[in-house]
Simulated assay, not measured.
Amino acid sequence: MEDNLKYYKNFPKQKDLEIDFRNIPPILNLDFNALNGILPITNSRLKFITDSGHPPILTVNPSEIEYVYYKSIGVNEFQAISIVFNFFAIEDNPEGSLKGLPYNISLLPMTNKGKIDTWRIELLEQMDVEQLSQEGNLVFTEFNPFQSWKQGMGMDYQIFSNLDYNDYIDTVGFNWGMYFLSPIFDKREIKVLENSTSSKEINAKYRKYKTNLFFKNFSNTEPRRIFGCDSPIELFLLQGMYLKKLTPIIQTNIFKSGDVIANYFEMQDSGIWLGQEQLITQADFYFPDKKLAIFCDGKEFHDLNKDKKINEALNKLDINVLRFTGKDITENLENVLETIQNEYKK
């Protein structure tokens, strides 16, 4: 690993930082803007407001009648959920600020002494929920999205940027915002952003998918990944490819029909639904212009027969395949990158 440290960079000493959203599915960007306030929004919540003589208009700051609703269904506290970004690279913007390129986006519950820390409803009633939801200046040091941040600390970004911080770019988690999650709701009544051109059946499947992703209450303090790399070796290879000016799509689903769809957020944007039974595999990285799929096989004793069948199925779709072991990536990264470059140039 020491020979590969040239692919790492220390966090730069500048103040302003923004997120490069270009490699994130557009529908997920829309979801982020709806992840604030008290969630989820349900038909029962809207009906209670209307039946109480108020217009069914929701703002980030809950109205008094909304708190009455939650108390009426037995809600005493909420989980505070942070939306945390990790970057595999940080670039300089022409205007002097920094731009972070995400390799991971996680949901993280607020914790205290290693346990989930909830917000009492009486406390939340006294707070400016909109200001809390839009708070995006918090930084988690030593954040490991593949496990948990156990040694890190949270601090304001302006303070962090002035510290003599010598650790690496990808070890820092940046809080983009937060929302407050109710422990009681009817999954069938949840309202989420949907594709208006999709069928009711497809939108119902998306609603179920997003409900489990965004609104399932946390039972432990582990981050919940909603987008990005699945393992450290994928991250390491991504950083190497970036320095070679290779920019693949992260985590791409390839189906028996020949459809290649980056993720379920992209599915919703396109208005189609393909179930797991139709999936051939999920490539760790994919170059659509070259129809090139790359897999990082973390275990030395991988299921070779299964890999062979997947390779054959992809080859029938005219998709080329490259596979690398974790040992290849950690000990011979330059050779791995050369192999990818040679295949990409064909």
Rank of each mutant, 00 (worst) to 15 (best):
R45V: 02
N335H: 14
G228A: 06
E343S: 05
K308H: 14
V129C: 01
N320M: 09
A80V: 10
E91K: 04
N162S: 14
D230P: 01
E194S: 09
D328G: 08
F180M: 00
I310Q: 00
L30W: 12
Q282A: 11
Y286E: 08
G240Y: 09
K306G: 07
I27L: 08
D170R: 12
I202V: 04
F185I: 08
T50R: 12
Q268K: 06
T281C: 13
S219N: 13
V75I: 14
R188W: 11
S44L: 12
E189R: 03
L163Q: 02
K309N: 05
S133V: 01
W119G: 07
I319Q: 04
K187F: 09
D259T: 15
M178R: 14
P40A: 04
Q278V: 09
E331N: 12
K187R: 12
P232V: 01
K299C: 15
T50L: 14
E125F: 01
K244F: 12
V139Y: 02
P26Q: 05
A34S: 12
R22W: 12
P288R: 06
F214W: 02
I27D: 02
N315C: 07
V336Q: 10
M127N: 06
K306H: 07
Q251W: 08
L163H: 02
S199D: 07
L322N: 05
N29T: 15
Q278K: 09
K113Q: 13
A283M: 13
V75Q: 11
D20P: 04
H54A: 15
K47C: 05
A89F: 00
R323P: 05
S133Y: 05
I24R: 00
F32E: 03
A293G: 03
F236W: 11
D156H: 13
G173T: 06
N86D: 04
G152I: 14
F11V: 09
K13L: 13
Q251V: 08
K210W: 03
I184F: 12
A80S: 13
N36Q: 14
L46D: 09
I233R: 02
F88P: 06
G275D: 15
D92E: 11
I27R: 09
H302M: 07
K47Q: 09
P109M: 01
N166D: 10
L279S: 05
F227E: 03
H302V: 07
A80M: 11
D230C: 03
I250L: 06
K316W: 13
